[in-house]
Nucleic acid binder design. Sequence first.
DNA 1: TCTTGAATATGATGTGTGTCATATTTTAAC
DNA 2: GTTAAAATATGACACACATCATATTCAAGA
Lengths: 168, 168
Amino acid sequence: MNYLLFISLFSYRINNQSTNYKMFSKSCEYGIRAIIYIASENEKGKKVGITEICENIEAPAHFTAKILQILSRNRIVNSQKGVNGGFFLDEYQLDLKLIDVVTAIDGKAIFTGCGLGLKQCSETNPCPLHNKFKAIRTDLKKMLEGTTIGELGQSLKKGKSVLKRIRV
Amino acid sequence: MNYLLFISLFSYRINNQSTNYKMFSKSCEYGIRAIIYIASENEKGKKVGITEICENIEAPAHFTAKILQILSRNRIVNSQKGVNGGFFLDEYQLDLKLIDVVTAIDGKAIFTGCGLGLKQCSETNPCPLHNKFKAIRTDLKKMLEGTTIGELGQSLKKGKSVLKRIRV
DNA sequence: TCTTGAATATGATGTGTGTCATATTTTAAC
DNA sequence: GTTAAAATATGACACACATCATATTCAAGA
């Protein structure tokens, strides 16, 4: 009976949830966006507050603050409390790589976990996708290792890229 | 005061949650593992039941069943109810690519969404990471487009790879 | 046609991530 | 020293995904 085939054409793509796929976690997305903004505004000792940051990257303030605390504890960004305080980066931090931000927030599992979620997957005990995945992951890692915070900040500052919708 | 630096060394990597990073969603992981197992057992019209599948890929039965229903509706796997029923693949399905499984379960957002989670990110309005991400994503897509279900099943069947811990 | 084994459909529960809210500490300026 | 502005810390809430449970449909065989 090919009415079955007929029905299947209509039921195709039933699961229409706007999928949860993320290259990084939401925490990581906000963290990267925040630090890029800080880098882009980082000149002559200027400090930027959490409110200004979140307005410019369109992120929830409290949540982003929590992530910046993690980055602060990990010495990836500097913070100063009190009046005229805020977040800022020194020369050393501007030269940190994207991978430093990612591992501080999401940990190192990005580069070690099995693509199929198998705990026992390893070089000597590979899952069917192990080697193909390794190649992709290596590319991703290289990219993250080869990109500096300062570089991304400059790109944003010079208008070569944007973090929020441009006002009309 | 460099006791601050001292403290920071101890507080490094505070967020020790075993991170949620996943190249794919859990649904997708189970789906891929299940179909690889089906492919590996697919010979002379043999059908495999959900119980056997889940025992061999170490996945929760009900959840996996739900995912296989999605794949079944999308004609990526065949199913037959009743006695001696089960899941099986025909020649055409064995030649389907991994990307067909992934998009059926997780949708196409993997290849379109912005790496930093920005809705407005596009070619003309790129986020600071846009181009660097595009390269990685292209690699991933090529890999998924170039890998067949049957190929992975054969790899498993021949013992070149495993899906569960080998019994001692 | 009755029984049994299998997939299918639907709903209920749990857990973790993302979000929000409040209170505390710190620092600068007056 | 008092006040105000800022980060920091902690806890509470909400929603989505992952998981589990139950009921239904279907097909083969006796």
